[in-house]
């Protein structure tokens, strides 16, 4: 028995080895096609990164004249203000949308309409929304506010609707059984069940909104983004990196605040 050698091969999740290789080949093939499709030959990438290193010297150190620094501060405050307003308006609009998008609380046509709205909001990147809104209402922070509000509703209403679908219908029925009106049912049966998550989600979304508010300006929707684009177009790369440092700092502070508040609340 010891003379006969047994072999062993790892069992594959694909059932048959041929399928496994076919799957791997398909994936590799797709990536090669992609690389060819976007013209990513190694030489070009290497050259690019070589140039990148040279450019790094142009970016460093971050530098801004006093006037530029003032402009960064002004526009950054504008960004933060946009984020603040949009978080409040976004959440305010999310609440009714969420109720209408909860399968257990809303009639079917209304449910589909609101789910569709949520999907649309989530699928479209903030930049795309901002471009359209700028065309509709003109340049400036109002366009940014509308954009971020729209994105907030998609995010918030979806999660809130899921929470509403998960609520304990037993206690809702219990409140209804006491003879409460629909509004009372809502206030006493539904709201207490979702309040804790609500607060955490609000702060989380505020954090995301701060991030978004720093870029929508690139397409003219207010905030620091416009300054960044101008700096890029003028090739003043040290100014660019000063702006980037400011953005990173603000984003980090927002993230820290949001994390701290959420930890406290749980």
């Amino acid at each position: 028995m010891a003379t006969e050698r047994r072999s062993w091969r790892r069992p594959t999740a694909f059932g048959r080895r041929e399928f496994k290789w076919a799957a791997y080949l398909a994936v590799v093939g797709f990536f090669l096609w992609s690389a060819w499709g976007i013209g990513a030959d190694p030489a070009r990438i290497a050259r690019g990164f070589g140039r990148g290193l040279t450019l790094l010297g142009d970016f460093l150190p971050p530098e801004a004249t006093p006037r530029q620094a003032q402009r960064i501060v002004d526009k950054m405050v504008e960004s933060v203000a946009m984020a603040m307003i949009s978080t409040v308006t976004g959440i305010a609009i999310s609440v009714p949308v969420a109720f209408m998008a909860a399968e257990n609380l809303s009639p079917k046509p209304l449910y589909y309409l609101n789910r569709g709205f949520i999907s649309l909001s989530r699928a479209l990147n903030a930049i795309i929304v901002a471009i359209l809104v700028v065309k509709a209402v003109g340049l400036g922070p109002l366009a940014g506010i509308i954009t971020i509000t729209f994105k907030t509703v998609g995010f918030f209403a979806k999660l809130l609707a899921e929470d509403l679908e998960d609520i304990d219908m037993g206690s809702v029925d219990a409140v209804r059984a006491t003879g409460a009106s629909p509004v009372q049912t809502l206030v006493y049966g539904v709201v207490p069940q979702i309040i804790p998550r609500f607060a955490g989600l609000s702060v989380y979304r505020w954090d995301i909104n701060i991030r978004t508010s720093t870029v929508v300006g690139i397409v003219g929707a207010g905030g620091i983004g416009s300054v960044l684009l101008t700096a890029f177009n003028r090739y003043s790369f040290q100014y660019v990196s000063a702006i980037l440092v400011a953005i990173i700092a603000v984003v980090l502070v927002a993230e820290g605040v949001s994390a701290a508040v959420r930890r406290r609340y749980q």
Binding site: A2, R5, R6, S7, W8, R9, R10, P11
Partner: peptide, 26 residues
Amino acid sequence: RRNFPPEDVERAYEVLERVGLADMEN
């Protein structure tokens, strides 16, 4: 690649049998 020398695999089978885990290799 899980490509061990055949004698290692054979030895592994033998040891598995010895500890009472024959046919459990996969």
